[in-house]
């Protein structure tokens, strides 16, 4: 076997003590249960509300072990907006189905499209709209978001959370968003602006969590933009 280099190592992903001692969660697996729930929660935040139909595609380790690891109920818990230590987590599929949500899980045999063994691709829809997100569970409950489809936009973020997305008919929101991040001393690691059919999407990959006040100030923009904080 050839020597394996360390070149592919990534940036600092685990920023907080509580990324490694924590989360407090329902077992049995931090990557396949808590992390899967976190990917479901991303879908929940993108969709805002309950979908009618859920399709989850699993790759590699997720495809092989999702049944034993409780990944199915964890992802659905996230889609329903449950916390990792919510006692309803193991019953999430029943709860979702009782609300009329149609759920499909697919085990994909190929390699992960984003090059990680713990990959889930989630699609949510109702009668009028749909979203898609591809997340990876990197260990200890931490996730990265590698792909998002929303409102006709397609995004490939660098991955680490938090990510803030604003979608608006206004083309001049960037300065205002940057002002808020600066005010609350949140560094921006990367940003993307997209335009499609008269709609504008602003994406910011942030270096640290937003405080409650910062969130509130961003959400005050909800009248003029769809504000999503992942």
């Amino acid at each position: 076997m050839n020597a394996v280099t360390l070149k592919e190592k990534k940036n600092i992903s685990y920023k907080s003590c509580f990324d490694v001692i924590g989360p407090v969660m329902i077992g049995p697996s931090s990557s396949h249960t808590a992390g899967a729930l976190a990917i479901g929660l991303v879908a929940n935040k993108l969709f805002k509300g309950l979908p009618k139909r859920v399709v989850v595609k699993y790759y590699e380790s997720f495809a092989e072990t999702h049944k034993g690891h409780g990944t199915d109920f964890a992802i659905i818990s996230g889609i329903l907006g449950f916390a990792t230590d919510d006692s309803r987590v193991p019953d999430a599929i029943k709860i979702a189905e009782s609300q009329g949500i149609d759920i499909t899980f697919l085990e994909e045999s190929g390699d992960s499209p984003v090059g990680h063994p713990n990959t889930a691709d989630i699609y949510l829809e109702d009668d009028s709209r749909s979203i898609r997100t591809v997340g990876i569970s990197v260990g200890g409950g931490l996730i990265k978001v590698k792909h998002i489809e929303i409102d006709g936009f397609s995004l490939n973020p660098q991955g680490s959370l938090p990510i803030m997305i604003a979608i608006s008919s206004r083309n001049n929101l960037e300065l205002e968003l940057r002002r808020i991040f600066k005010k609350y001393e949140v560094d921006i690691n990367n940003s993307t602006n997209l335009e499609k059919d008269g709609k504008y999407l602003y994406q910011f990959d942030l270096d640290s969590q937003l405080s409650g006040e910062a969130r509130k100030e961003l959400e005050n923009l909800s009248d003029i933009a769809n504000i999503i904080i992942l």
Binding site: V20, V24, I26, G27, G141
Partner: peptide, 21 residues
């Protein structure tokens, strides 16, 4: 055992390794 029973644990650093620390 609590983890395998889908009880509440603290991941340290993971749930599979939650008993060691």
């Amino acid at each position: 055992e609590v983890n395998a029973a889908m009880g509440v644990i603290c991941a340290t650093p993971t749930a599979g390794a939650s008993g060691t620390i």
